[in-house]
Each structure stands twice: as structure tokens, then as C-alpha cells.
């Protein structure tokens, strides 16, 4: 069974159906980009995958060692976080939930947090204040927290929004490396060239699912080529 199996999924936002008849599978190790225009239901789909919203019809099933609560989630940054007094370690640890109901983080939680700080190259920032970091560093901190919470799949919601091109490129490299290590990646993205470059599969939605399949087929498809041309003048290398 795939890690996530969506069948005939319909999602509503404030009683309006935003996406219907959605069918797709996510298998271990894949890198899926969800693309589509603003208001096409991408965020609603993310909330449904996380269990924060129930589908109006159809089903989302989890398998292959994945359960809904072990999806690592990287949300878009909120305005609250910008001046929040918190150390990097406090934030990364908040992704660790292996201790269940205990009010104290276990040794295991601390070692998971340290491992992920190390993995993203931000160990030296552990004692720093989150609000004093650069945008790219903040995003790495949130990614480390996301990895602490993830068993085998991470879900990223426009992770490079607001980052400069160099930092964005570094961030994509990081995600690609994490994906090569066996982590399934689902990313909502506006960045079409990067999606085509890195993703193994593309899900294009706009009320109805317009395309789901491997990236190479997407580029050749009518909707794919049209979308790429429309947004980027066709100047895309895969």
C-alpha cells in the first residue's frame, strides 16, 4: 500500500467545493510538488492531509508505516513568529513528541533534536534567539523541527516564500538531500522551474485535478506546457 492514498477526494472551504475528484497516491521516497494558481485549493488539501480538515467526500488513507500524526509539517511562517522570544533549541525540541504525556523532554528527544540540528548545519545556532536569525536560518530551524516530528514523510507549504535566490537554491539542495536519504517529500510550490527540476511527480490542481503523474510527462502534457509557458515563457530546463 502507498503511504498516502487519496480516492475521489472532495474538499470544501466555507461550504464551497474547492477541489473535487482528486485521486493520487504517494509512495515511499517520492518527491511530489503540488502546483496550481492561488485559490486552487492547495492549502485546503494540505490541511486535509494533516487531518485539520475533514473531506466533504472521498477518503485519505495512510499506510506503509505512515500515520497522520507522524507527517512532518513545515507551515508558512506566521506574523506571530517574527518577534517571538524563543531559542532555536526550544523550537526544534517542540517537534519531538516521543515522550507522550510527560512534561519533560526525554534523552531520546534531545538526541533527535541534536541530530537534526547537525543535519541542517545549525548546531552552532542552538542557543540563539529565533527572531534574530536571517530568513534562511529561520527556515532551517523550522525544517529541523519538522524533521523531528516526521517518521518518513515531510509536507512543506511554500517553504521558499520570501527567501532570496541564493538561500532558496541552498534550501532546495537540502530538501533534495533529505529526499535521497529516503524521506518522502510533498511540497506546495509556486516555483515552477524548481518543481520541475527536483520533483519526481507533479500534482496540478484547479478545482479539478488537472494532472497527476511523473514530472517528465507533466512537461509534455497540454496543461503542463501551457502552465509553464504562461508563467515562465517556456524557459525551463528539466
Amino acid at each position: 500500500m502507498p503511504q498516502i492514498e487519496c480516492r475521489n477526494l472532495s474538499l470544501a472551504y466555507e461550504n464551497h467545493i474547492v477541489v473535487s475528484d482528486l485521486n493520487f497516491d504517494v509512495n515511499a521516497g517520492e518527491y511530489i510538488c503540488i502546483v496550481g494558481e492561488n485559490g486552487s485549493g492547495k492549502s485546503t488539501l494540505v490541511r486535509a492531509l494533516l487531518g485539520l480538515k475533514s473531506p466533504s467526500s472521498g477518503s485519505i488513507r495512510f499506510g506503509d508505516g505512515l500515520s497522520q500524526n507522524t507527517i512532518g509539517y513545515l507551515p508558512q511562517q506566521s506574523s506571530i513568529q517574527r518577534d517571538f522570544p524563543a531559542s532555536v533549541r526550544e523550537i526544534v525540541l517542540s517537534g519531538c513528541r516521543s515522550s507522550g504525556f510527560s512534561p519533560i523532554y526525554s534523552k531520546r528527544d534531545h538526541s533527535i533534536a541534536n541530530e537534526n540540528l547537525e543535519r541542517l548545519g545549525i548546531s552552532d545556532l542552538a542557543g540563539h534567539c529565533y527572531r534574530e536569525l536571517s530568513g534562511g536560518q529561520q527556515q532551517r530551524v523550522l525544517l529541523a523541527r519538522c524533521l523531528c516530528a516526521a517518521r518518513n514523510l515531510i509536507l512543506l507549504d511554500e517553504p521558499t516564500a520570501g527567501l532570496d535566490p541564493t538561500v532558496t537554491a541552498e534550501f532546495y539542495h537540502l530538501i533534495a538531500a533529505i529526499n535521497r536519504d529516503g524521506m518522502t517529500v510533498i511540497m506546495v510550490s509556486h516555483d515552477i522551474p524548481a518543481s520541475l527540476h527536483y520533483a519526481s511527480h507533479i500534482l496540478h490542481i484547479a478545482r479539478h485535478p488537472l494532472f497527476f503523474g511523473v514530472t517528465a510527462d507533466y512537461v509534455k502534457s497540454e496543461i503542463g506546457s501551457h502552465f509553464i509557458e504562461h508563467f515562465h515563457g517556456g524557459d525551463v530546463s528539466v
Binding site: 485539520l52 500524526n69 513568529q81 517542540s94 517537534g95 516530528a149
Partner: peptide, 18 residues
């Protein structure tokens, strides 16, 4: 304490972890 921190800092992430 840790839950209050998690929810205060990022409600959607906290909700996603259950």
C-alpha cells in the same frame, strides 16, 4: 509547559502533530 509553548509558537504545526 511544552504544549503551551508549541501551541503559542505555531498553532498549525502543533495541531498537525496531534
Amino acid at each position: 509547559y511544552h504544549r503551551i509553548f508549541a501551541i503559542t509558537f505555531d498553532e498549525s504545526f502543533a495541531a498537525a502533530t496531534g
